[in-house]
Design a protein around this nucleic acid. Structure first.
Lengths: 221, 221
DNA sequence: AGCTTTCTAGCACGATCGTTCGATTACCGA
DNA sequence: TCGGTAATCGAACGATCGTGCTAGAAAGCT
């Protein structure tokens, strides 16, 4: 990795942090340059436009987020344990800027069409699909009923996390996390096979880690 | 109402619409003036600063939102019917800019301290408290179990709606609304009395009849 | 009607926005 | 070590940002 790519990564790290606070639109080249300790034009040369910068920031945040949340989950056994690990990493990374940026950008660009919007939607679709796929795996493993709707599960899951971000970050509610954990357990319960001792299902054999779930997000580059 | 207050309201109506698209920070005095058909300085004179404008926009959106969502709900019978009416109005006003602005502003100002942030938090606290209070009323009316946690209910409710906004507005998912309705019914079910053998009841019921199940519990009016 | 208060437009300001360009420095394979 | 490529900088561009100031138009009151 050349020097250019190196500082580029450093810039993007900073950019994600800033953008998670002020949004992708509020992210300014001048302030980013100052934060990165380089000139405005020097920084600008790395990305040919602000729009390109925004997309790169989005991609960067996605990579980091996948690495910190999805990847560890895929190392866990399929089904409920994997979902639980995902949840744990997701909630745990709430101080991390990468996840927050996605939520912020989602609200900011929800009806501002353009390349940034399209890229953002694509990433979110991938993420939702990963959630749904994990639910399907849970069904296949016998942890969930087979009439559970994976898309419903994914939306409920995501909504639950959005609620967490909201209560945790805006309202600074110290109980937000505990409630989110309860909501997550309730979500699992709703999908779970009735009259079954969960602990036995949870200790299912750890099949090989990387499966279809999240494959869309894990493709290189 | 004098002419000044009249154009002020017109300005704020426009401002809420614009801010729901580009955020409170992205809301610009110049573009707002152009949209309102008046000069930049003429508009500016109504609010002594941009920050004051943002707060007024926030208050305006809140008033409208309460009028369109909370007020109709309070006209419904206490407990579950009221909650159902609230949900209905809330979901129904998703095209309305007033609700969206709050979600947008919440993400935008979640760690930007200042007067706007404080006002926003206050409004959100009020809203959440309204949700929790409705839950308490549901308990008092005997619709919900008395060990239901109202704050948990409020967070779950809000999260569910955030999920709706997300899937509906960003992802343009045509099924978002139906899933949100299912999630809402599941939320009611979880809080509902009696708490008998949920698993069998849950599995036996086809999805369509879930909606009707709660309404049968209490007679209208 | 006239008079006073309120509202609005025009102009200008410093700052910062994204962006371009040419010069200069740093890096790296030969 | 040298020469060429890549990285960075400084200065400047037009546009737009939020914000004052002042003069005039409109509205409201008696």
């Amino acid at each position: 990795m050349g020097k250019g790519e190196l500082t580029r990564q450093a810039i993007l790290d900073r950019a994600v942090q800033i953008a998670s606070r002020v949004g992708l639109g509020g992210l300014t080249i001048g302030s980013l340059a100052a934060e990165a300790g380089m000139s405005k034009s020097g920084l600008f040369a790395h990305f040919r436009s602000k729009e390109a910068l925004q997309i790169h920031v989005l991609d960067h945040a996605r990579e980091r987020f996948v690495e910190r949340v999805l990847r560890p989950a895929l190392a866990a056994p399929r089904g409920v344990p994997r979902l639980r690990k995902l949840f744990e990493c997701w909630v745990g990374s709430s101080g991390d800027a990468n996840g927050c940026l996605f939520v912020a950008a989602a609200v900011e660009f929800d009806d501002q069409e353009g390349p940034v919007h399209d890229r953002l939607v694509a990433h979110h679709r991938d993420w939702i699909e990963s959630l749904a796929q994990m639910c399907r795996t849970g069904i296949a493993e016998g942890h969930f009923r087979d009439d559970v709707d994976p898309e419903q599960f994914a939306q409920d899951f995501y909504g639950l996390m959005l609620g967490y971000y909201h209560f945790h970050r805006l309202l600074r509610d110290p109980q937000a996390r505990k409630r989110t954990e309860r909501a997550f357990e309730a979500l699992l319960d709703r999908a779970r096979v009735p009259h079954l001792d969960v602990s036995s299902a949870r200790c299912a054999q750890p099949r090989d880690s990387v499966t279809a779930s999240g494959a869309a997000l894990l493709k290189p580059q």
